[in-house]
Amino acid sequence: MRRPRRGGGGPGTAVPAVHTGRVNAVPAVVVDGLTRSYGDVRAVDGLSLTVPAGSVCALLGPNGAGKTTLVECIEGFRAPDAGRVRVLGLDPWRDRDRVLPRMGVLLQEGGTYKAATPRELLRLFARFYPHPADPDDLLARLDLTAAAGARLRTLSGGQQQRVALALALVGRPELLVLDEPTTGVDPHARRAVWTLLRDLRAAGTTILFSTHQLAEAEQEADLVAVIDRGRLRALDSPAALVAGGGDGRLVVTGAPATDPAAVAADLAAAVGAAVTPDGPGRWTVAAGPAAIAAVSAWFAARGLPLSGITAGAPDLEDVFLRLTSPNAAAPREPAPTGRRHRP
C-alpha cells in the first residue's frame, strides 16, 4: 500500500488508469461519479477519475471548470452530493482523521498567518503530524532560508506561495494535493519547486496538481486530466493526448478580409476543420499539412490573395483548446482510445 509498483510489469504493460482496482495497489485517488452542486450550478457533474499511487497527475481546465471543487472534495472539505471519493482507500469526508495525516494540501491562495514567520509556521505544522520533515531542511530546499525569520506579510507572493507549499510537505504526505502550486512563482523558484516535487515523486509520493500552465503539465505529469464544465473531457498521458489531438494547425495569412468571420465559416465548411479568425487577414485552421491544398484551392477559387500557410505541430495547448472550447461537443466520458499513462 505504501510504495506502489508503478507499471509493475515494465514499460510495456502500462496499467489502465481507470479501474486499476486491486491490480497493484490501492489507487491514491478514486473519484467515481462525483457530483457537487451550488444551488442550481453543477460545479462537478458525474466525474470519474483515478490517480494511480505514485503518479503525478495534472488537472487542467478553464476557470470555473470545477477543478477546485473536485480538489476540495478530495481534500475532505466538501461532501459529494452524489458519487464516491476515495483517498488512499479511505473516504476523505468520513475518515478524515485517518486521511489527513497522510495528505498534504496546498490551497489556491492564503492559508498562512500573516504575522508569523515561515520557520514558526513550519514548526507549528510539523507538530500536527506523526513523522514530520525537518522544517529547516525544507526551508533550505525551497530557497527560503533567508526569509525564514521574516513575517509572512513582508514576503513576496512567490515566497508566500513556497511557504504554503512547504506547509503541505512538512508532514511527509503520501498524497500531495496542490491547487495551482506555481501560480505567481518566478521561473527560478518554479524550477526549485519542481526539482523538489520530482524528488518526492521518486520517493513514491503521489502528486495531484491543478494548473493553468500547459507546459508544466506536459513536462511534469504522467497523467493529464482535462476538465470542462464539471466533466472529465480527457484523461491520458500528455504524449498520448497530443498524439490523439489531431494533426496540428495551419496558420493562414492573406489580405485583410472585410468579414474575417465569414471567411472562417466558409473556409471551415470547405476544408472540413474548425477555423478561427485571429485577425483581419489571419486564420487558424485545426488541421494538418494534408489540408494545405484544400486551403490554397479555396483562396484561389475566390481570387483572394494568400500570402502564407504555416503548419504547426500539435501541442497540449491545441488539445486543451479543442477539448474545452465553448462549442465543443457536449462533454462525454473521455474517448476510450489510448487510456494509458507513461509508466
Binding site: F77, M103, E109, G110, Y113, L167, G171
Partner: peptide, 11 residues
C-alpha cells in the same frame, strides 16, 4: 486569510 481552512486540512 483561509488559515482556518488550511488548519482544517491538517490533523
Amino acid at each position: 486569510w483561509l488559515v482556518l481552512k488550511r488548519l482544517g486540512a491538517t490533523p
